[in-house]
Design a protein around this nucleic acid. Structure first.
Lengths: 116, 116
DNA sequence: CGACATGGGTAGACACTCTACCTGAAGTCG
DNA sequence: CGACTTCAGGTAGAGTGTCTACCCATGTCG
C-alpha cells in the first residue's frame, strides 16, 4: 500500500475511535491500534506516539480506567476499560461527528441533498 | 443557539471548505466565512483568526490567487480565486475526506450487532 | 465630526499528531 | 547460557492548525 493510500488521522477523532473500540470490551493499547487499523480496512493507522498520549488523556478525564494484566502472548499489558462517563462521552462525540459530517456534506454536495 | 450546538472545526477541513466555496466563483474572506456558516446551517463557524491564516496558506501553495477589489458595500476587499492547481487539490482533499468518513464509519457502525 | 460596521491582519496560547527515540520483559535460537 | 527479536508501554520535540484577543484602515450615517 502506497503512502497516499494511508490517511492521516483527523485531529480529535482518535479519542472517539478508542472509546468506540473499547465498547467491545477491555483491550490493551496495541490491540486497540490493531483493531482500528484492521476494521478500517487499513485506511487508518494509529501511530504509537499518538495512541499512548491519547490513552493518558482519556484516563485523566475518567473516561477509561487501566489495569495491568497479561496479553495473549503472555506479555504484561495494560487493559483499558470504558467507564460509564466514557460511554456518555462516546455518545456525545459520536453525535458531534455525525453532525459535523452532515454539515460538511452540505457544503461539499450542495446539489444532492436530503438523500440518505 | 447554545455553545454545544457549534462544532469546532476539524483540523484540515477548513482548506477544503474554502476551496469548495471558491468553486462558485471568486469571493472575499468575509463572504467565504459567511457562505460556510450559512450553507452548513449555522453548524460550522469559521473564526476570523482561522480564516485569514488559511487563506495565506492557500495562496502560498498557489491554490488560490488574490486581487483587491470592492465589496458589495463598497469596502475594499481581497477577492480570492481558485487556480487550476487549486481545483486539483480540492479534488484530492474531497476524495480523501470521503475515504476518511467511510473508514471511520466502518469503526463506528460495525454491522450494528452490539450486545453479546 | 464621531460612532459604528466592514474587511483584512497578526500574536500567542493551546491541542493534537507525528517521528524518533527509550525502557523492560518474554520468547527464540545458536 | 547469552544474544537477539518481538511485544508492550512510554516520552520528547517538532510541526501544524485552530482559537481568543487584539490591531488597523476605510466607508456610512446620525
Amino acid at each position: 500500500m502506497s503512502d497516499e493510500e494511508r490517511l492521516t488521522l483527523l485531529q480529535g477523532t482518535l479519542d472517539m475511535l478508542i472509546l468506540r473500540t473499547l465498547r467491545w470490551g477491555p483491550a490493551h493499547g496495541q490491540a486497540i491500534a490493531r483493531f482500528i487499523q484492521d476494521t478500517s480496512g487499513d485506511a487508518l493507522l494509529v501511530e504509537h506516539g499518538s495512541l499512548y498520549p491519547a490513552l493518558q488523556r482519556l484516563q485523566q478525564k475518567r473516561w477509561i480506567v487501566a489495569e495491568w494484566g497479561a496479553s495473549d502472548n503472555n506479555r504484561r499489558a495494560k487493559y483499558y476499560r470504558l467507564t460509564p462517563a466514557g460511554r456518555r462521552q462516546l455518545a456525545r462525540e459520536h453525535s458531534n461527528w455525525e453532525r459535523l459530517v452532515e454539515a460538511i456534506g452540505r457544503i461539499m454536495h450542495p446539489a444532492a441533498q436530503d438523500k440518505p
